[in-house]
Each structure stands twice: as C-alpha cells, then as structure tokens.
C-alpha cells in the first residue's frame, strides 16, 4: 500500500464500490429510520435526528483517529502516502464535525428548549474538535514548503490526539457541575431493533461513503505530489499517446 502507484490503482478500483454501497446503505437507513422506525416513547419523533447526528459525530471522531494514526505512521516509518491521507481526511472530518454540531444543536432545540446547551459534554467537546480541525488546516495553509507542512502538521495532529481524552474529560468534569440535561443519552441496551438497524446501516453507510471520498481526495493529493514521476505522466497521457 505504501507505493503511490499501487495505491493509486487500488483506490481507483475501490472508489465506486465504496461510494455505491455507502449510498445504498445510507438511503436504506434514512428511509427506514425516518418512516418505519417507531417513535421514541420519551422524545417522540425528534429522536429521528439520531440517524444523521450519530453517524456524523462518529465520522468526525473516526476521521481524527485516522489522521492521528496516519500521522504516527508518517512520522515513525516515513510513509509518504500517510501524509496524503491526512490531507485528504481533514476537510471531510471538519465538515462532519460541523454537521454533528449543527444536528446536535437542532436536536437540542426541541429537547432542551435551546439551540446550544453548555451542559452537554459531547456537544462542547465536539466544538473543541472542530477547533482542532481548523487549527490543523490553518497551519497547513500557511506553510508553503510541502515537506515541512507535512511533518509539522503531523506533529500538531498527534499533540491534538493525545489531548483529546483530556479535553473530553475536563469538559465532562466541568459540565457535571452544571447538571445539564442529559436527554441525548438515547438508546441504551434496550433499543428497539427497528430503531437500531437503520442506525447501524447509517453508521456503516456513512463510513463507506467517507472512505470513498477519502480515497478520491487522497488520490488527487498523491497525484499532485507525484506529478513529476514517470508513472503519473504515463497514466495521465496514456489515453492521448
């Protein structure tokens, strides 16, 4: 996987599969979740926001973990592909973090009576997660030298990653002093399977979809980095020669 050329061909063949299966699962999950799942006995139909909120929150966490793993791999084993993966994952992760915040806030409005509740630790730490993504992208954007930008931003990602548990813990400690509403603890073990399966379908589908877009972005980034190599020229001009 570490050879850019090999990665490029693998990615090209994987993208349509990931994209199509992800979209099918997402459509199925959304339709089932919105129309066939029974309403929650406490929250009524408002709980249906879970089908977009939880997948986006999950993707935002997963994207950052993936970036942290890639940063680790890139710094320790100096695998160039890993840097391209980080560059590809960051904007997607930031978008889904923003989405998790937005849907969480929309969910909060009918449940808590307010668009933003500082008492909910997950929403608050998600906001800090968005700041971490933005910080990474700001650092990346202001470093013109590619090799330098790669390594420095990888260090930043790792520092952020080891601080995420601390940030989460401190936000939780802080909100426990407020005793804010904790209605968002939806589900639990006794969740109805009609509610659960669409959620699982959404989570898996969004992950596959994220994977396909990650491959697209990483592909573009790899190509941009390898534009002077022979294989890239050959492949790009192959249809015209």
């Amino acid at each position: 996987m570490s050879s850019p050329r090999y990665f490029y061909s693998i990615a090209t063949s994987l993208i349509p599969w990931f994209l199509v299966s992800g979209l099918i699962l997402m459509v199925a999950g959304l339709i089932n979740g919105l129309f066939y799942a029974p309403p929650d006995y406490q929250q009524g139909d408002a709980f249906r926001i879970i089908y977009v909120h939880v997948p986006s929150a999950y993707i935002s966490m997963m994207a950052y973990s993936l970036m942290a793993f890639a940063a680790f791999v890139a710094l320790i084993w100096r695998i160039k592909i890993a840097h391209a993966v980080i560059v590809g994952a960051a904007p997607l992760g930031a978008w889904f973090t923003f989405l998790a915040l937005l849907t969480g806030s929309i969910w909060g409005r009918p449940m808590w009576g307010t668009w933003w509740e500082w008492g909910d630790p997950r929403l608050t730490s998600e906001l800090l997660m968005l700041f971490l993504y933005l910080g990474y992208m700001a650092l990346r954007a202001s470093l013109p030298n590619l090799a330098q930008a790669d390594k420095l931003s990888a260090i930043l990602i790792l520092i952020g990653a080891i601080n995420i548990p601390i940030i989460h813990f401190s936000v939780e400690w802080w909100t426990s002093l407020h005793q804010g509403p904790t209605l968002l603890k939806a589900g639990g073990p006794a969740i109805d399977s009609l509610m659960l399966y669409p959620l699982l379908a959404m989570i898996i589908g969004t992950t596959l979809y994220f994977g396909s877009l990650l491959l697209v972005r990483t592909k573009a980034e790899v190509l941009n980095r390898e534009k002077n190599s022979r294989w890239a020229k050959k492949m790009l001009l192959g249809d015209q020669l």
Binding site: L128, F131, L132, L134, G135, A138, L139, S142, L143, N145, Q148, L152, I155, L156, I159, G160, N163, I166, I167, F169, S170, V171
Partner: peptide, 22 residues
C-alpha cells in the same frame, strides 16, 4: 510549529487554544 511562518501570532493562538482549554 510556526517558526518558519511570518506573522504567526494569530495562527499560534488558533493552534494552541483548544489544547489549553482543560
């Protein structure tokens, strides 16, 4: 991290502020 960037003052704040929140 921002040693090679000119005028990095605001950038530094953006980078470290989320980590300083705890």
């Amino acid at each position: 991290l921002t040693i090679s960037i000119n005028n990095s003052n605001i950038l530094v704040s953006l980078l470290v502020l989320p980590i300083m929140i705890p």
